[in-house]
């Protein structure tokens, strides 16, 4: 199968690969350890998957903000994302 029209690069492939890995991981977690939704600081019911979605979407905005507002190296935004992820999984 020729995928050259999709213009793959190693970084983007790695990016999608890790997203896919996280999705698979969370699916396995959900099957192994079923959970009941809980209500967090946002006042909405969330499951693990919801919190993952909020984390990923928020991280995208954090990265864009980092790129647009600071001149610091981009990888440092990932530290902030990790803190954000921890906060989301703890309190949302």
């Amino acid at each position: 199968m020729d995928l050259s029209w999709m213009a793959w690069t190693w970084p983007t492939a790695a990016f999608f690969g890790s997203i896919a890995a996280v999705l698979v991981g969370f699916t396995i977690l959900a099957i192994r350890y079923p959970e009941t939704p809980r209500v967090g600081v946002l006042g909405i019911e969330t499951t693990r998957g919801d919190r993952l979605f909020i984390t990923l979407l928020g991280s995208a905005f954090i990265n864009l903000g980092w790129l647009g507002l600071t001149d610091l190296p981009q990888w440092q935004a990932l530290i902030l994302c990790a803190l954000y992820a921890a906060a989301v999984f703890r309190w949302v």
């Binding site: 029209w5 213009a7 690069t9 999608f16 981009q74």
Partner: peptide, 23 residues
């Protein structure tokens, strides 16, 4: 959507040739 992500980090002058552009 994946293709769009791939395009967004590259530059192209057509002919399906791409050059890395990062962010």
């Amino acid at each position: 959507l994946m293709t769009v992500v791939n395009y967004s980090v590259q530059d192209s002058f057509g002919n399906n040739q791409f050059f890395w552009a990062g962010l």
